[in-house]
Simulated assay, not measured.
Amino acid sequence: MTGVTKWTGREAGLLRFAMRKSGKTFAELVGVNPRQITRWEGRGETLELSLANQAALDTLLARAKPDDQQRFAALLTERAAVEHDARAEELLRRDPRTSRHPGDGKLMVLVEEGIYLAGADNRSMWLDAFRVDIYPTTNGDYERFVQATGHRPPQHWTNGRCPADLTTHPVVWVTWHDATAYARWAGKTLPTAQQWEKAARGPRGRIYPWGNEPTAAKCNVAETGIDATTPVFRYQSGVSPFGVFDMCGNVWEWCSTEETPGSGRHELKGSAFTSPFQRATPSLRNAANATMRDNDTGFRCVAPA
């Protein structure tokens, strides 16, 4: 997995927990006094560790077992999700473009009407204004739909219920028909491929949501090495010009647009944790049969402005 940019007491504590080590054993592995571990964890993110200790933790993480590394990544992700949720609520209160949809309660943002640059050739296209979900539909969102309608739950849920550790992850194992049923229940629709692309690239044709630099670290793709979905709030530096998350990586997203009229195949956008970064370009075209379901395919919705 990728390393930690800056080790504080918080990250050190999460690594100890992920490795299932006592304070004494963890201190021996890092090469410090056990009292320092207690101090680090007590101070949390207010304590930035010395360069020597940061290097020691870098080495310890690199040599950790894959299961320990995955647990550590999951713990970091969960914390980031919780932290960002407060910022999202602040955005809701302050930004007049954002609103909560009355159907499913999800946070949406306005994409203004006008011309945008579309496709690999950046051709000019006009779209009317619309609202788009800031985050993909999560397992938690989808569970409310399943409980309200009796719709078939995804196959990776246990006894028809969303696993607690996946509540903020995008729902997967859903067909185009499943996604459409959720959208209808919520009083929304799936985005057209054009709406999805404009929400991802902005009006001026950015190659990626964050700009034109091919930075794989800003999204959950194969190169990231996580090999699983992540909470929809995680990649804050990868948001689009409209403030929309996960438009590159994490999961492919169903669109309402058919590949060719009557084909029964619908466009997918955004790439996924299973795909190489080169597949994450929002202008890229991909499609699948409407009955396809997989562990890397989900959706988000749009609504009228």
Rank of each mutant, 00 (worst) to 15 (best):
G3F: 03
V4Y: 06
K6V: 15
W7S: 08
F17H: 11
R20N: 14
K21F: 09
G23E: 09
F26H: 04
L29K: 12
V30F: 03
G31E: 09
G42L: 11
T46R: 15
L49W: 08
Q54L: 07
L57Q: 09
L61T: 06
A62R: 15
R63L: 15
Q69C: 10
A73K: 05
L76R: 14
T77V: 04
A81S: 15
A81G: 14
H84K: 13
R87I: 15
A88R: 14
R94W: 05
R97V: 05
T98R: 15
S99R: 15
R100N: 01
G103P: 08
L107F: 06
L110M: 06
V111S: 01
E113P: 13
Y116C: 01
A118R: 13
M125E: 14
W126S: 06
D128E: 13
A129M: 03
R131P: 00
N139E: 04
V146F: 05
A148K: 06
A148F: 05
T149A: 07
G150R: 04
P153S: 06
Q155S: 14
N159V: 02
D165S: 12
L166M: 14
T167L: 14
T175Y: 05
W176Q: 10
W176E: 07
A186K: 01
K188H: 02
K188M: 13
T192A: 02
T192D: 01
W196M: 03
A199Y: 02
I207L: 12
Y208G: 01
Y208M: 07
W210L: 06
A217Q: 11
A217D: 10
K218M: 12
I226Y: 13
D227V: 00
T229G: 00
V232F: 00
R234Q: 11
R234E: 12
Y235R: 01
Q236C: 04
Q236N: 05
G238N: 03
S240R: 03
G243Q: 06
D246S: 06
N250L: 10
S256C: 05
T257P: 09
E258F: 08
E258P: 09
P261E: 11
P261V: 03
H266Y: 15
G270L: 09
S271V: 03
A272W: 02
S275F: 10
S275V: 04
P282R: 08
P282H: 07
S283F: 13
S283Y: 13
N286D: 13
A287S: 15
N289D: 15
A290S: 14
R293C: 10
N295F: 11
D296R: 02
T297E: 06
T297S: 07
G298F: 08
R300M: 07
C301M: 10
V302K: 06
P304M: 08
A305N: 12
